[in-house]
Design a protein around this nucleic acid. Structure first.
Lengths: 139, 139
DNA sequence: GTAATTGCAAATACTTTGCCACGTA
DNA sequence: TACGTGGCAAAGTATTTGCAATTAC
């Protein structure tokens, strides 16, 4: 995706074309991987251009419009689960009410995990798979 | 898994058998889904039994020993990524140094996502898949 | 008896908001 | 001009740590 088309999508979503928006989009495009607010605020393009609060609010707006995704579980707090040997669980999570339910189906990631284990040289490999959406009660 | 075997695994990992440990394990076993520190501290078994700091440190030790898993990205900060229509990325993350790299392979979750979309009644369904392990540089 | 563990409280870290000035449409 | 947006600073929330008292082994 080009910077121009990213800006167009934001404009179409009702956002104003500002310097901060352009620099943020350019930085996210360059990154090609998820970034934290602190990383974005410290990045060359943004550090001199705009306040951390501005980036925060831009990310928030972009996330609301579906143009940016916030990775990980959507609550502010960390989640912990008991590790049961031989058992793997995926989760189905409502982005509105935050409910979390185990997915009752075999996990389709096993083969890819083996492939990555072999090719990447990572040790102690495991994975997490979460599905997000709006649950029937919330929609 | 039974409470007894969970306790045994902790003992084998070198943890002392304390009231707080037993109650925490019992609560996690009951839950059958990931729990936040705040939820755990407020749960009936734990609220009167031990301090939030104790639960925090127990979770930390258990996570170190691999008996508990902390879900979501492992940094304290939230991660944001640009949404590119038609593009889906999985990530390979080092639990030691925190490096994040896109996985260069087709995502195997598509079919299951369709199945869940149909069966669960969730709207706007999407998923996240992350692989965790120790990268070659860190091991 | 010794070292791990706990409770309480204080310190951090990251996020979120209020308010007024500013810039885009 | 009007309303979305930006900067600065303060407040909020969850995490993390210090230290003395306690407890498991």
């Amino acid at each position: 995706m080009t910077l121009g088309s990213a800006i167009d999508r934001c404009r179409a979503a009702g956002l104003r074309r500002t310097k901060a928006l352009e620099e943020l989009l350019a930085t996210l495009l360059d990154a090609a991987r998820p970034m934290t607010l602190a990383e974005l605020a410290a990045s060359p393009r943004l550090v001199t251009q705009c306040d951390k609060a501005t980036i925060y609010r831009l990310l928030h707006r972009l996330t609301d419009k579906g143009l940016v995704r916030r990775l990980g579980l959507h609550e502010r707090a960390a989640y912990f689960a008991l590790v049961v040997p031989g058992q793997h669980r995926d989760y189905l999570i409502c982005t509105e009410c935050g409910s979390i339910a185990p997915v009752d189906a075999p996990c389709p990631v096993h083969d890819l995990e083996d492939e990555i284990r072999a090719k990447s040289g990572f040790q102690n490999l495991y994975h997490e798979l979460e599905f997000f959406g709006t649950c029937p009660d919330c929609s």
